[in-house]
């Protein structure tokens, strides 16, 4: 079943001049059809201003479509009566870890969501424990969030969302502000949730290497989906991605250079391990 399904999704906003009169209409999303099945790991790529984040904000009804429909767990996000059901299906994690943590102690912060949902106290603590465990942060439960690194804070943010038992987690550039080890921690946590807990994950990112393990990728440009497919399919299209202000993972670029020099490597090499394995076959 599709946990998320958008049909012909359009989002326009009206720009106004100094007197407040409408001056211009900007189309941020232009007939977008994206379906995400339960249990999938989906990556969404696109340059700054391509519409990725506007798309994400439609998934938990922070924004409503100007045209078309967004279905979350089969519910239309325009249906006001379903607002809380829709939001309980989708957990959102944003870029800046410091804007998402409110508790003085890690476990308090993670418990805030379920407490707000009216979950009984005993169950809150169970959820806090399982969520922190899922992101590898259980040993930090009594710590102050201020003492954590960026990657640890983002994992606490993810745990906070998990504790509300959503069906799908949407991560909107969760690693943009992190150092390389923090980035790895967060991506490992997201992959773990998908592999172990079978959580549906939608990862929006600028870092190509973070989505090489995704089931499917969608590439956005000017509010449209311009490419979709498996990472191997999408990252074989090196020149097209460059024209979209994007890129391919580093090992893919090296393989591409070697191929130009006449080394017979296959298309779609994504990781250092794959590159080394294929080079071994060439000797």
């Amino acid at each position: 079943m599709d946990i998320v399904s958008t049909k012909d999704l359009v989002f326009e906003y009206i720009r106004r001049d100094d007197e407040g009169n409408p001056s211009d209409v900007t189309t941020a999303l232009d007939h977008v059809d994206i379906d995400v099945k339960e249990g999938e790991f989906v990556g969404i790529l696109g340059h700054n201003g391509s519409g990725k984040s506007t798309f994400a904000k439609h998934l938990n009804a922070l924004l409503y479509p100007s045209g078309g429909t967004v279905f979350v767990g089969g519910m239309d996000t325009k249906d006001d009566d379903k607002l809380w059901d829709i939001r309980s299906n989708i957990g959102m994690v944003f870029q800046n870890p410091d804007n998402q943590i409110i508790g003085q102690v890690v476990e308090e912060d993670v418990g805030f969501g379920p407490e707000n949902l009216g979950v009984p106290t005993k169950e809150i603590w169970e959820r806090v424990e399982e969520s922190l465990k899922a992101v590898g942060m259980l040993e930090f439960r009594k710590k102050s969030p201020n003492k954590l690194s960026g990657g640890q804070k983002q994992r606490v943010s993810i745990a906070g969302v998990l504790a509300m038992h959503p069906k799908c987690i949407v991560l909107d550039e969760p690693t943009a502000m992190l150092d390389p080890s923090g980035r790895k921690e967060v991506i490992r946590a997201a992959r773990g949730l998908n592999d172990v807990e079978k959580m549906t994950v939608i990862l929006i990112t600028h870092y190509m290497d973070e989505v090489v393990h995704a089931d499917r990728l969608f590439v956005m440009d000017k509010g449209k989906v311009v490419m979709q497919g498996t990472p191997r399919e999408v990252f074989s299209r090196v020149e097209e991605l460059k024209a979209l202000r994007l890129d391919v993972p580093g090992p893919t670029r090296i393989a591409y250079e070697l191929k130009k020099k006449g080394i017979p490597l296959p298309d779609g090499i994504l990781t250092a391990e794959e590159l080394v394995r294929e080079i071994e076959k060439c000797r």
Binding site: H47, E173, A176, H206, L246, D247
Partner: peptide
């Protein structure tokens, strides 16, 4: 370059 797309 934090937060910018690859070409940015």
């Amino acid at each position: 370059t934090a937060g910018l797309d690859p070409v940015g």
